[in-house]
Structures are given as structure tokens and as C-alpha cells.
Amino acid sequence: MSRKPSRAVMEARAPASVERDDAVTALYRALDYFPTPPWAARAGAELVQRLDPLAKTVWEPACGEGHMAGPLAEYFSVFASDIHPHGFGLVEDFLQPSLERRAWSADWVITNPPFKDLSGFVSRGLEVARSGVAMLLRTAAVESGGRYSLIQALSLQATFSERVSMRLGFWDPDHSFATTYSWFVWMHPDAEARSPLRQAIVEARAIGGWPHVLVPPGARDRLWHADDVRKYAKLAPAPLFDGASA
């Protein structure tokens, strides 16, 4: 009977995989670039609207090729930027903004950030967002002692009950991976106070937690648009290494 390789075996194989990277793959890996399925971005937009019905403007600071910014623009006025010139949005380092852009703000910062820079993106996002920050992350983001204080400050977590497929460098609409994802939301106190979900937030905080909901089955079909593949899917940039999801 065959068995799945252990975590130790997979970790031992990882350096060999990285060594096989071509220049494009190496760049995407350095950028931690895993484009968001458009339907999952729309689920995040609906979540923010539920938390803050008055939200109008959004800053998407890790926009890549627009996989999230494009769908968000169906709900909000969106400003998009990224540290790398992917051909979509302004080229700007969100964590080290230029002088003329340090005062920019929006109602919300919504993004799928480089995981290694998660804490920095949340902190910077709360500086520039008037209401809050929503981040699409691996659900395992909660499993870190170093992020304990950050996670304890959550206003809400929404975990997908369906798989959100993310691959290095491109969106593949035909594949699924075992990784689970959640929307993690942090709100300023005044935004929490006026939110329709304020009572749930207060009651969860009273027992040392935060509200945790499920994005229900069927969201993928409901939020999938007929032209998403034409707009956002592309062939894998050969010879991109076919590695695991984010």
C-alpha cells in the first residue's frame, strides 16, 4: 500500500525543487506570487460589505496581474499597486512607500499578501485604512506563536468550505489543492463599533477569541463569472516548476 511522503521527506525535497527553478519561477517564488482565484476575491468583497456596508474605497497593495483587484473593482473603487511591474497597477513598495504616497488612504486594504510579509502588511494596512484590513491567507496562519498578538486582534475569520486553488505564478482554474484558506479581517475600534456584526465581535472578544464563520459551499459557482478564464487565466510560464500551492 502506497503512503503519502512525510513532511520531513517533502522538506528534504524542497531544496532540489528550488534548484531546478528557471528565472521566471525563481522570480515568482521570491515574490511569493500566488494569484487569487477571482471568485475567492469576490467572496472577500462580500465579507467586507457585510462588515462595513458603507465601504467605498479599497487599496489592493499586492495586485500582481489584477486577479484580486479586478473582481474587487466590481464592488468598490479600487487603487492597485505592487512592488513588481506585473503590468497592472502602480509599481510601489507598500511597506516602504514613497514620500508623496505615505499619506494615501482608503476605507479598506484588501489583498493576498506575500506570506513572509504578513505582519508588515497588516500593520501598514491599518495605518492607511480608515476602517480595516482584509487578508486572504492560508488558514494555518493562526498556527504561530510569533503571530499570537496579531491573530488575537482579529475582528473576524471566514474560512472557505470549498478549496481555493492557488499555484505559483498563475491561476489554474482546473486544479485544486489540499491547502485551506481563510479571509482574516482586522478592524479599527470605531469601524467595529458601527459594524452590523459588532455584537458578535464583542461577545467573541469576551472569551478571548473572534467570530469564525464558513464561506458556504456553492460560493465558487455563484461567484464564478463566465469571462473569468478569459480575463485571468493563462498558460503556466514554461518551464515553471509544478510545485505545491501557497
Rank of each mutant, 00 (worst) to 15 (best):
E60A: 11
K231G: 00
F121T: 07
K116M: 09
P97N: 11
Q96F: 10
V128I: 14
G70E: 07
I207Y: 11
G120R: 11
L223K: 11
A141W: 09
G243I: 06
W171M: 03
M10W: 03
T36P: 09
E11V: 11
N112P: 02
P216S: 08
H86M: 12
A80N: 13
W171G: 03
Y33D: 05
T180Y: 09
A226T: 15
K234L: 08
F88Q: 09
Y75L: 04
A45V: 08
D117R: 06
G89M: 07
D32A: 12
E46G: 05
L51A: 03
G208T: 10
L235G: 12
F76Y: 11
P38Y: 02
L156E: 12
W104A: 15
L27W: 07
Q96W: 05
A244L: 10
E143V: 05
V142I: 11
V229H: 04
H84E: 14
E192M: 15
G125S: 07
L156W: 15
N112Y: 06
A80I: 10
A43G: 07
H86L: 09
H84D: 10
E74F: 02
L156D: 03
P15W: 07
D221L: 09
T111S: 14
A40I: 05
R29V: 04
A106R: 14
L154M: 13
R147S: 02
